[in-house]
Design a protein around this nucleic acid. Structure first.
Length: 276
DNA sequence: AGGGCAACCTGCGCGC
DNA sequence: TGCGCGCAGGTTGCCC
């Protein structure tokens, strides 16, 4: 499900619901969600207070007292919601954090792909998947020069390179298709062959698109919901994703859908230029 | 070293 | 109605 704008929206909506609450008990209905030791997770998280929630790319960092952080990745379909602790368990509820005030945070994930890991606060950038990530869009480190050097290192398609989180962290299948259309770059272009002028365009478009998608509270295609159960608004602004066969709004050519390293990819075969 | 691809899961829509 | 197949906002681990 979620890419960086959706995860940021979850962070913003979840924080006011749980900040300051004390966790009384953790229940693991499907322990595989916990990537660290499940018994230790249950034992150490109980009794802690939720201090705040940070985010890096698509990872949520739930900051607890006791110098603990839950690093949570929603993968395709993970969702959080706050319920009364007496609410019957949904079929796909896998983890519960029961608070001292009779409310509970439930983690729900139809495909069970999401993962949580308990780490000592401050070590998350070396002890979790975050260690392999590149820089985030709109960060001071994300410069045109950084992107240019990153792309030159990659001998594969620009589509695959932008999905690979090691150069730019936070983009996923929807926003990569959108940003390549916006930048008029064919998804099968080689990352290391894109001219400097286009790299600058790509850089600026990534920043603009991510900012706009966050303002719109993310994109809902199938199932994405924020912590209040609300859908995003960006789907109405998508130009290519989900629009196979429809005319390109720039040139009228029907949009095509192909597979690029296993991922569905929609693009305009006329105005997106191939660099090879 | 870096790239390709199956694996991890469930549900839905489609064709037969 | 039922079944099999392909598809889905992601990552990772294994193979070459």
């Amino acid at each position: 499900m979620p890419e960086m704008p959706e995860v940021e929206t979850v962070r913003r909506t979840l924080l006011p619901l749980i900040k300051g609450k004390t966790i009384k008990e953790v229940t693991l209905w499907y322990p595989k969600i916990i990537a660290s030791d499940p018994a230790e997770f249950v034992q150490k998280v109980a009794g802690q207070e939720v201090l705040t929630i940070d985010r890096y790319a698509k990872y949520l960092l739930i900051r607890l007292s006791g110098n603990l952080t839950i690093v949570s990745h929603l993968r395709m379909e993970g969702k959080y919601r706050l319920v009364d602790v007496a609410t019957p368990k949904d079929k796909h509820d896998h983890v519960q954090f029961a608070f001292t005030d009779q409310t509970a945070l439930r983690y729900n994930d139809v495909r069970k792909f999401g993962r949580m890991q308990l780490v000592e606060t401050g070590t998350e950038k070396v002890t979790t998947g975050i260690s392999k990530l590149g820089v985030e869009p709109n960060s001071p480190e994300f410069t045109v020069k950084y992107l240019s050097i990153g792309l030159k290192r990659k001998k594969k398609s620009i589509k695959n390179t932008l999905l690979d989180q090691s150069v730019v962290a936070g983009l996923g299948n929807i926003y990569v298709d959108e940003v390549l259309w916006e930048s008029k770059i064919h998804p099968l272009s080689m990352a290391n062959k894109i001219p400097q002028k286009k790299v600058k365009e790509l850089h600026d478009n990534i920043n603009a698109l991510i900012s706009l998608a966050i303002e719109e509270r993310g994109t809902t295609i199938h199932t994405y919901l924020d912590a209040n159960g609300q859908t995003g608004g960006f789907q109405k602004m998508l130009q290519v994703y989900g629009h196979r066969g429809e005319p390109c709004v720039r040139c009228g050519t029907p949009l095509e859908k192909i597979k690029v390293t296993g991922r569905g990819t929609t693009y305009c075969p006329h105005c997106q230029v191939m660099y090879r």
